[in-house]
Design a protein around this nucleic acid. Structure first.
Lengths: 341, 341
DNA sequence: GCGGGTTACGCAAACGTTTACTAAACAGCG
DNA sequence: CGCTGTTTAGTAAACGTTTGCGTAACCCGC
């Protein structure tokens, strides 16, 4: 490995000067710069990140923690994080927190000893424990979850999104709308989405019908069965994740119910999964990649304590595909599809 | 931040001794160990990774590079990598190489300056350029692709897997079997899979029919149309990725062809996507998570140059779900489903 | 041509570890 | 009791950077 000293010798200057030109500081002549740069090229020099980090107490790494790595939602966010990070010369370090954030603190401690520039927490609430494990020097930001006002976060307004989704189904003429929620214990965003659904239903004078899955595909069929047991005449099902939504579409068809003619299905998140089913799932979109990008932008801007704990709200969007349709009601009033923001 | 010197002072010993107990070396009494450990606990000391890495010329990070981050196949492998890494106290650093490995060298250079313990390359061939960018000290292993004998790799036998898949369809009684391949330019594993298909077809005296997509969902419908244009009487389609397989299932149904009664569909990889479609996709499984785990195991064992360039072959497995069925042929011979390894 | 201001650059001390090397303490043993 | 061998522990020199400080050299106007 060639060091800064090798370059200095080759260029006939001191290591200090090499460091200055490498870091674009001032204090050297144009001629010196040329010689140094030539030496760098010839020796194929690359500054050692470890030594640099040790001295400057900062490394260009951003930690990303998600409940599970191989998850469509988390993957999309990570993709945005990776893109934004690489654009700014940062690397990303990946970690899995487990469904109930079991490993989070341990990862954060590691990230601290790496002197990470910041960490992004996906779909998990920031606890005081975590904040402590990370130490005070490193900014932390949670994404795809709203965490009161205590820590910076970046998410859509899940309550409003669920409200809008429910309103959309109502506007299609549906009256008997079932909700397929996720596990409120592990993914607390479910609680607030559920609230949005309930508000829309009671406002419209409709009676809520709801069951819980765990957000994953396999949990949906049994939960759907329970939903149908409660009200066999449901004309629409609102699933709070695309995986469950996709499962509902498939299961309904297996049961011989036609989607969307007999029963509409609405998903949530707009992950790839929504496209993988036929008819394609209408869903509430979160700007996932964009959220990842924004997270690193805000994180790095947070060097200045100007950015306080400002939970930033991103817009959600209703995406209408093939799984929802107006109710063919006996009253004959048929609202039509629309894409709204 | 508390340093090793603080601990030493608190325990009344020298930094050297603290270092020894932290690293489990020998050369201190039981009493000393007790005092040091107590001081560590009290001061909440955590050794600085950067300083340690600088001195020892090694850090506990493993790099993982994939063509795209938010890909079901890559995600599953990464998941295995993360699990195995964390088990051994290693962290994983994530990078995206782009479809034609554009960014790979740059990432490898970064990984080198971090003095990574090893790097894992997913679905991308190792080039001499990459090997050079990484330097000579860091082991590199490619996963889910077989790279001749030049660099260590870990994959299934794609030729045999495609052969077996095709044989399976033939054993079901199908004679007119179309292949939906991926883009051979970007994902070269497609070439060898195609070879397996061709071998099985010619061995059986059948005429191959094939078209190319790009492995992604959206590329499948048009490719399927071209396939059908070549032979409208196809009774089975073998798609070389689950995304394409899922798209084929959906598209076929949209065209009014019943799956699997009129036409069977076989996928490849056994990602989550295979489950997201109805009927669920029969597919050739790669042990993706296991591959990730094994990759880090071999990588870390490769400290000893005992492990040469031994491309390790993992077993593939045929998974029969609902998208394939025996051909109802006029001859009346109906082979039945089976799960084989 | 000289003082004052600027610019270009080198010296050396950090940053927090690990690890030779060395020394003291101690035990065993004839 | 001296001698040797072993164990425990400390000293200090690295590892490859960055950066405060100092000092030549230079520029400029009077």
């Amino acid at each position: 490995m060639t060091t800064i000293r090798d370059v200095a010798r080759a260029a006939g200057v001191s290591p200090a000067t090499v460091s200055r030109v490498v870091n674009g500081l001032i204090g050297y002549s144009a001629e010196t710069q040329r010689r140094v740069e030539q030496a760098i090229d010839e020796l194929n020099y690359e500054p050692d990140t470890l030594a640099r980090g040790l001295k400057t107490k900062q490394t260009a790494v951003i930690g990303v923690l998600a409940p599970v790595v191989s998850d469509a939602l988390a993957s999309d966010i990570m993709s945005g994080v990776e893109a934004a990070a690489r654009l700014r010369g940062y690397s990303v370090m990946l970690g899995r927190t487990g469904p109930s954030s079991t490993f989070a603190a341990s990862y954060l401690r590691t990230l601290r000893t790496y002197r990470a520039a910041g960490v992004i927490l996906i779909s998990a609430a920031v606890t005081a424990d975590m904040r402590r494990a990370l130490g005070s020097g490193i900014p932390l930001m949670s994404v795809a979850i709203r965490d009161g006002q205590r820590f910076p976060s970046l998410a859509i307004d899940d309550e409003a999104a669920a409200y809008d989704g429910t309103r959309y189904l109502i506007s299609l003429g549906h009256r008997r709308i079932g909700l397929l929620a996720g596990d409120p214990a592990s993914v607390l965003v479910n609680t607030v989405r559920k609230r949005g659904y309930l508000r829309a239903m009671t406002e419209a004078g409709l009676t809520p019908v709801l069951e819980h899955g765990n957000s994953l595909y396999d949990s949906a069929p049994p939960a759907l069965a329970r939903l149908l047991a409660q009200d066999g005449g449901l004309t629409a099902v609102f699933a709070l994740s695309d995986e469950m939504g996709a499962a509902v579409v498939n299961e309904l068809q297996r049961l011989g119910r036609r989607v969307p003619d007999e029963i509409s299905v609405l998903g949530f998140d707009n992950t790839r999964t929504a496209m993988h089913v036929h008819p394609a799932l209408s869903t509430i979109a979160q700007p996932l990649e964009r959220m990842g990008e924004l997270a690193v932008e805000k994180l790095l801007a947070a060097g200045e304590p100007a950015a306080g704990p400002t939970p930033r709200i991103l817009p959600h969007r209703l995406i209408v595909r093939g799984s929802t349709a107006p109710l063919i009601s006996s009253t004959g009033s048929i609202p039509h599809n629309k894409e709204q923001s």
